[in-house]
Design a protein around this nucleic acid. Structure first.
Length: 376
RNA sequence: GGGGAGAUACCAAAGUGGCCAACUGGGGCAGACUGUAACUCUGCUGGCUUAUGCCUUCGUAGGUUCGAAUCCUGCUCUCCCCA
């Protein structure tokens, strides 16, 4: 993987860059649609490419390991072959499941044991075997196994959790360096900053992560219950330390406003389930504000889903029709809403990039944050 | 023509003397959702007003009772079975 830093904003820490992988280039800042089980829910690959202009998508180690299982993925030659997505794929390590499936896991120095949410069977993840699994999945970008502690963790817990993540990181890096890609293209490995809501821990973690000198770095453990200002503050602290010549990935974030603010703080890569999940639940993000399409006021609004939108569904369908579909729980509703939201997210980061390059990012962002947080 | 069952809030359906403004589900109206256990979850859904308050409601008209959606009588309507 290669990263080229192309422009840096004068009035903020925003950057425009280019990541190059064996599966193609990624223009940053970028948003990466989440496809947990190898599928961006309700969206097919041609739509991802042509309507949404996605440049990279996510998969998840925990979920893909359960289904279809590593055997199948190795047999077919990796996830790209399996799901028909020939652009880059990044896989999360299962660190988020340490947080989201907290009731069904046990943390130990060695690793983490999950109770499968599907059949209750035991799964053991270590910093080493999640590298193996991600190599088998064929991810272009492999994430380190981390512990993602809740946003309201106290200092003592946050510190010991961070230290565990750091020890795991060393093991993960060692293992990554001693193993090879399985399918003939290169894979890279991103470590993850932790430290919950504490500046000194975040600082310490960012320094530790940076010292491993990997090709890119991630910021984890944010947007997990802490106040938004804390999230920005932590991001700010961390991006001051992480090297400028490597991409920075803020994991799991976020709302359109979160993304704009974080771009201004020097983040290059984002992923979030919000455009897809909230879309399925009837929430649309647009350049003029947020729409709860289930609200009665849209029942007879026969204007386009998003007149400013860039993709087919935005102009082909009306708000009234989309509301009808979502309320009737029709699959097409989920599809339209997901495609629209993802296309908007990709448009948003693309515009951010254009404005960074043009030099007026800061004022554009200020205006855009206002719009995007409006409720229509 | 004979016999039987039933009418409860927008719909369906519990409740068969006080704990009933009335279970529950659907529908409706809002809200939530941030590295996806999520096409999911939460709240409200008679009126006034928001209170340990009042008023009006369980087909309809009366009655019994301290007290009725619940018991009795008349009426209206619906459904099922047999002719």
């Amino acid at each position: 993987m290669k990263f080229e830093l192309q422009h840096t904003d004068i009035n903020s820490k925003a950057r425009a860059g280019k990541v190059t992988t064996d599966h193609g280039e990624i223009q940053t800042p970028i948003f990466m649609p989440v496809g947990t089980v190898g599928s961006v829910k309700a969206v097919h690959q041609r739509e991802l490419k042509e309507d949404i202009s996605a440049q990279i998508i996510l998969g998840n180690t925990y979920h893909l390991n359960l289904r279809p299982g590593i055997g199948i993925l190795e047999q077919v030659g990796g996830l790209h072959k399996f799901n028909g997505w020939d652009k880059p794929i990044l896989t999360d390590s299962g660190g988020y499941q340490v947080f989201s499936l907290a009731q069904m896991r046990k943390l130990k120095e060695e690793g983490v044991t999950f109770r499968s949410h599907i059949d209750g069977s035991k799964l053991h993840f270590t910093p080493e075997n999640v590298v193996d699994i991600q190599r088998s999945i064929g991810a272009d970008i492999i994430m380190a196994l981390d512990e993602c502690p809740p946003g309201d963790s106290d200092y003592k817990y946050a510190k010991s959790s961070m230290e565990l993540t750091h020890r795991w990181l060393q093991r993960g890096v060692n293992h990554f360096k001693s193993t090879d890609p399985k399918y003939g293209y290169s894979q890279t490995f991103f470590p993850i900053v932790q430290g919950a809501g504490f500046r000194d821990l975040r600082k310490q973690s960012a320094e530790t992560i940076a010292s491993h000198n990997m090709e890119g770095n991630a910021i984890g453990g944010l947007a997990v219950g802490e106040p938004t200002e804390v999230m920005y503050e932590m991001t700010d602290v961390v991006t001051d330390i992480l090297p400028a010549d490597k991409p920075r990935y803020l994991m799991g974030v976020g709302t359109p406003a979160n993304i704009l603010e974080s771009i201004a703080l020097g983040v290059d890569m984002f992923d979030c389930v919000m455009p897809t999940r909230n879309g399925r639940n009837g929430m649309l993000f647009t350049s003029e504000g947020m729409i709860n399409i289930k609200n009665k006021r849209w029942a007879d609004d026969f204007t386009p889903v998003d007149p400013n939108g860039s993709c087919f569904v935005d102009h082909h369908y009306s708000r009234a029709y989309l509301r009808h579909l979502i309320i009737s729980k029709e699959m097409l509703g989920s599809q339209i809403a997901s495609i629209h939201n993802l296309a908007f997210y990709l448009w948003l980061v693309g515009e951010a990039r254009n404005h960074i390059i043009a030099g007026d990012f800061h004022q554009w962002k200020t205006m855009m944050v206002k719009k995007v947080t409006t409720r229509l």
